[in-house]
């Protein structure tokens, strides 16, 4: 029996606009405990009219702070996203993997050039 759980994003956040970090956090807080219990989750984006990276960073990118790539890959699916939004999600996921692999790396990688007094 398939006990995959579907989270309907637009229903959960009460809006077709996936733009705020707060709403992203709402999704994350539903997905994370389910994954901790080993449940398979489908994040369903039907009826969403606007999606931005900030929301996805918090809702999905943040999962890589709690779970391995393998765990996320085996348990999480997304549905209902257009092709261009899937590409956006791919960028967010790649960025999140890099971030959690070395959170301080982004900062250290920055070598400031000329610092003038202003």
């Amino acid at each position: 029996m398939d006990d995959r759980i579907t989270i309907k994003v637009a229903d959960l956040i009460g809006s077709p606009l996936c733009i705020s970090a707060e709403d992203g956090q709402k999704v994350f807080e539903k997905v994370e405990p389910l994954l901790k219990k080993g449940k398979s989750v489908t994040i369903f984006f039907d009826h969403v009219t606007m999606l931005v990276s900030l929301f996805l960073n918090v809702a999905i990118g943040q999962l890589y702070g709690s779970f391995s790539e393998e765990e996320v890959r085996s348990l999480v699916k997304v549905e209902g996203l257009s092709g261009d939004d899937m590409e956006l999600l791919k960028r967010v996921v790649d960025n999140a993997k890099k971030y959690y692999a070395n959170p301080k790396g982004y900062d250290a990688a920055w070598q400031d050039g000329e610092n003038e007094d202003e």
Partner: peptide
């Protein structure tokens, strides 16, 4: 807050 970002 230990969240990825910086893509916008």
């Amino acid at each position: 807050g230990r969240q990825p970002g910086g893509l916008g």
